[in-house]
Design a protein around this nucleic acid. Sequence first.
DNA 1: ACTTTTGTTAACCATTTGGTTAAACTGTAT
DNA 2: ATACAGTTTAACCAAATGGTTAACAAAAGT
Lengths: 201, 201
Amino acid sequence: MKKDESTEQKILSAAKKVFVAKGMSGARMQDIADEAGINKALLHYYFRNKEMLFETIFLELSTDFFPRLKMIFDSDDTLFTKIEKFCTAYIDNILVNPYIPIFVLNEIHQRPQWFAEKVMKAGAPNMAKLAKQVREEVKAGRIRPIHPAQLIMNMLSMCIFPFVARPMLMNLMGMDDPIFRSLMEDRKTEIPRFIMSSIKL
Amino acid sequence: MKKDESTEQKILSAAKKVFVAKGMSGARMQDIADEAGINKALLHYYFRNKEMLFETIFLELSTDFFPRLKMIFDSDDTLFTKIEKFCTAYIDNILVNPYIPIFVLNEIHQRPQWFAEKVMKAGAPNMAKLAKQVREEVKAGRIRPIHPAQLIMNMLSMCIFPFVARPMLMNLMGMDDPIFRSLMEDRKTEIPRFIMSSIKL
DNA sequence: ACTTTTGTTAACCATTTGGTTAAACTGTAT
DNA sequence: ATACAGTTTAACCAAATGGTTAACAAAAGT
């Protein structure tokens, strides 16, 4: 509970923390109230119910993230530059809030329809331009033939997955927190290198 | 509800289905009973409580999966063969039950301690041999320098992540189910090619 | 045949949980 | 001072939920 924020802000911070940690179905309104240091009824005063509080948080996370993607992918940079920028920006971002991806992906999995309608249609980035860029590089013979979707999935996978699977990977390969963090720092440059090394002719 | 199975089997199938779909905290004992076509009290007759039923399912999923990994990674195959075998085997497997990864990863995230103690210590595969193999290939100059952990994470990421992020990816890149499936089929060979193309000298 | 064990159910119980209500408090304009 | 709107709380409520009980049915011993 942070003292100097407005009540609404305290609620939002608390809700974000609890939802991200326990997921929609695991989060308790009482937990959120406690975390915010307020009465439970006050939650319902600011946000009608759990669903609306959840949507607010989820939308905030999405509208925070998507524009950044958009900016990178819709720019006039070269393919390589975009890959570099995305990996650095994304990993840097996630390192500050490492549990957001698993939370978001799990909730999307829980309500794919709702996500498609309420979140996606709002401000989803358009991958078409990036895909086109890949096709052109292939056609120009500057990179080896690859389906744009495969390349994009590879990049997203390598950037995001380690955070989603963090506890499993740490156990599997015997890492502790500092090692994990250091490996993730390295990945900001390692992934672009890995990708370019794979597709460059 | 399948008619010819034993009651215990009916419960296990139903529980697996419901847990995988809704997660531990989202699953309801009543849902599982309904899905199994039995009375709710019978669940508690066979499995003392929700926690034990959950652990049974989770352990079953793990002990089903880990030995397969182990077999591949501990074999005497070359690094390249192992990569090929893993990607094919894993994707083939997951295509049959595509929602298991997000379920498993989310539950691990929810209870990392429990996972480390109860699941990992049982029959987790050992990545050391594979890592050593990578280091040797690097030293022998047959592949370009790369940290074994990074290479392994890249492979796991590219194989698993698309299933974890399936609804998001489908929305983001405008795919439908057949397209997604076909892309995943392609990945069985595309990922090994991508990796080898990246590290081969 | 009958007794004992195993399997199954309907009804019930205690707790948790999301949500409501009515009263009290706080600041501000009159 | 007082009225008033917005804010906050304690107490409460109804539904959902995990779990139990006691009675009943079906097998399995004897």
